[in-house]
């Protein structure tokens, strides 16, 4: 899958979960400090990725949900390892 496509799809998931407009954040915007993401929202982002790409991501990888770029990298790792 193209990086741009994956990026924009996961951006949509994040925007939906945290109820923030897509143009209010980019790849490096910090989820916790800049967007007020809490542990439940991070879990919901993880679940959103799992559902969309039919992958299973273990709980200890929640720590990778820190910004959009990291989330995309995490998703890519599991999509490619499928």
């Amino acid at each position: 899958m193209e990086q741009d496509q994956l990026f924009s799809e996961i951006k949509k998931i994040v925007a939906y979960v945290i109820e923030v407009d897509e143009n209010e954040f980019d790849g490096e915007t910090k989820f916790v400090d800049d967007l007020g993401v809490d542990s439940m929202m991070a879990l919901e982002i993880l679940v959103g990725i799992e559902k969309k790409y039919k992958v299973k991501i273990p709980e200890d990888r929640l720590e990778n949900i820190t910004n959009l770029n990291e989330s995309v990298a995490l998703a890519r790792e599991f999509i490619e390892g499928k």
Binding site: L43, E44, V47, K51, E59, L62
Partner: peptide
């Protein structure tokens, strides 16, 4: 369950 973890779930 959609996903259950040690500190919560969906």
């Amino acid at each position: 369950p959609v996903k259950l973890i040690s500190t919560g779930g969906v």
